[in-house]
Design a protein around this nucleic acid. Sequence first.
DNA 1: ACCCAGGCGTTCG
DNA 2: CGAACGCATGGG
Length: 298
Amino acid sequence: MEFKVAITDSPNFSFEECLCFLSRSPKECLHYIHDNKITRMLVAGTEPVVVEIRMGETADHLAVKILAPAEPVDILPLQQYITRWLHLDVSLNEFYDFTETDPLLKGLAQQYRGLRLIGMPDFFEAITWAIIGQQINLSFAYTLRERFVKAFGYHAVVEGRDYYLYPQPAVVAALEPEELLPMQFSKSKAQYVINTARSIVSGELSLPQLDEMDYETARTSLVALKGIGNWSANYALMKYRRFPQSVLLEDVGLQNAIKNRLNLASKPSMTELKSYSRLWKEHTAYATFYLWRSLLPQ
DNA sequence: ACCCAGGCGTTCG
DNA sequence: CGAACGCATGGG
């Protein structure tokens, strides 16, 4: 069974650029990239589905093949997930025009043309990935994530490959921190991940409400949770809600990207960061994402 | 051995 | 208040 997923602003879409970003870690365990195709497990309603995503025969869509199950499934949730994941429903024209006016961003549009801001349609994934990635290097963060997903995520084997879903909040809420320590989570990281899961399960952190909040309200409500600071709140809101004004000036990756582009001797100070990003406004999230991209090879 | 890492919470001045 | 410090552990 096959279906299509529409691409908005297809002249400014590059599947290859998206694949490049999606390939950034060899420890990635939620999807595979091979032969210019993505395979991964998704959920249609409540049913796990393994899909293969490739560029469409024409530029205006992606083509998706369902590898499992053999029976027909509801494709609408799959289309919605893929659209949100790869940010297929936006135009990049305004961002690209803006980069030409900004000395720091100039050239990024040509270099990485067609790259979309890869998101996380699952809020629990977005917020816990932020907690996992706090203050440790990205390589180790992926190691922790891989152990976490493989221990607590739904698993299936299709065509000889292992597929996983990100762990559900209810599963993680039932854990004790001691169960994460052997995976080399620190005590606080373990506690924060479990506390966040429990907040979601209890309704203290309401996803339907979070979906309706404006940026500042959502940010404030996330920062109120222990273990979630300004960086983590903004990261999750950038990847999940896709607020264009999400700003991550505390981010070491962003700071290094700016240092590299401007050939600075050291990372910019917070004052300098504010100055560089002063005019970004609704382009902040994309500017950050493209600067992150500039840290990858090629 | 040392410093840094896609920070956060607590304590101190 | 903002600054300094402890945390925890892999990576270079």
